[in-house]
Design a protein around this nucleic acid. Structure first.
Length: 332
DNA sequence: AATTTCCTCAACCGCTCTAGG
DNA sequence: CCCTAGAGCGGTTGAGGAAAT
């Protein structure tokens, strides 16, 4: 007993779209819109296609103002930063890049950008192994990751590692993966803040390109309109009476958000998060930070290391979450 | 020139989420 | 509340082209 198919597979055409099909679909949507019902749409137009297929074709290819290929370095930066912060939430990442589709970004990441980065990481690793083979052995043994660590999370950790290595190659914490999962993120934050400050003092671009910081900061600041300020202001403020804003590298805080949201997810309340101005509020009226403290009090540790969760659902047209991205390239 | 291997990206699959009855 | 249909999303696949042998 499986799930009922969304359409009659036998009478549905699959595979690449012909130009005629494209024209039919585009003309219809241009004139009448989707009508809010993709499933019914192909029948109205006389297309032997699944509604989902029509939707995908429209969103990824036929929709106006779609850009294909030719990602700029700025786009690379944004993708990388958001990937590190929130993982493979392609639709959210795509929302930050006008004209780009989630599918496009996903493909670009999987086929090019990731390799570009990991290529640099291999270079770094080779240098490291010459410099310190002992430490690497320990590290390799410890790299046998917990099975509950998703690939996405691992990849993000790897990228963090790379960023940190490139910036601060001798940072023992980042070279010692065994430390990561064992520390509760809340505890981790105090440790990593030191590294964070250090790391953010130098200009850096993981792709090895020159970064126009001013430009990027402007762009990235636009992205940074939600959770990061939430986190930095609510949390850092509580820890730092002087309320000194520290641009941060994202590692610890990101993980804290992950854990927080994983906790909430596990409790089935994450859907109830809403963005209220610069802070999130639970529907019961308590701030998420107070909720976090409460959760922290109740739970001894959080074992979930799944991919990041970002608060993204709001009503139509509202752009959500976003941030996060305690962008890597901020210089102080 | 022929064959094999690698790479890219459009499209599909199956799952979760959401809204409406 | 519960159920269901449709929308949306992320992971995966495979056809076709490019590069290597």
């Amino acid at each position: 007993m499986g799930r009922a198919p969304c359409c009659d597979k036998a009478n549905v055409k699959k595979g690449p779209w012909s130009p005629e099909e494209d024209v039919k679909l585009k003309d219809y949507i241009d004139k009448y819109g989707t009508g809010g019902n993709w499933i019914a749409l192909p029948q109205k137009i006389g297309l032997k296609r699944c509604g989902k297929s029509c939707r995908l074709r429209w969103l990824n290819y036929l929709r106006p103002n779609i850009k294909h290929g030719g990602f700029s370095e700025e786009e690379d930066s944004i993708i990388l930063s958001l990937y590190i912060s929130i993982g493979s939430r392609w639709s959210i990442i795509a929302a930050q890049l006008p004209g780009r589709t989630d599918n496009d970004i996903k493909n670009y990441w999987n086929t090019k950008l990731k390799k570009k980065l990991l290529g640099r990481q291999k270079q770094m690793n080779r240098q490291d192994s010459i410099a310190d083979s002992t430490e690497n052995n320990i590290s390799n043994n410890n790299n046998k990751s917990p099975q509950n660590l998703s690939n996405s999370a691992l990849e993000r950790l790897q990228l963090h590692m790379q960023l940190q290595n490139l910036q601060s190659p001798f940072s023992s914490f980042y070279n010692n993966p065994i430390l990561w999962p064992k520390l509760h993120p809340l505890l981790q934050s105090t440790t990593t803040n030191q590294n964070t400050k250090l790391a953010s003092q130098e200009s850096f671009h993981p792709l090895g390109v020159n970064v126009d910081h001013q430009h990027n900061n402007t762009k990235l600041a636009q992205i940074n309109n939600g959770v990061s300020s939430l986190y930095s202001e609510n949390v850092e403020q509580s820890q730092n009476p002087a309320h000194e804003f520290q641009p941060n590298f994202g590692f610890s805080q990101d993980l804290r958000l992950d854990n927080h949201n994983m906790d909430l997810m596990n409790r089935g309340v994450s859907k109830e998060l809403f963005q209220v101005g610069n802070e999130f509020e639970l529907t019961n009226g308590s701030s998420w930070w107070s909720e976090e403290v409460e959760l922290e009090r109740k739970t001894t540790s959080s074992s979930s290391w799944g991919s990041a969760s970002v608060l993204d659902q709001t009503t139509e047209g509202m752009v959500m979450l976003q941030d996060y991205a305690q962008m890597s390239y901020h210089s102080v």
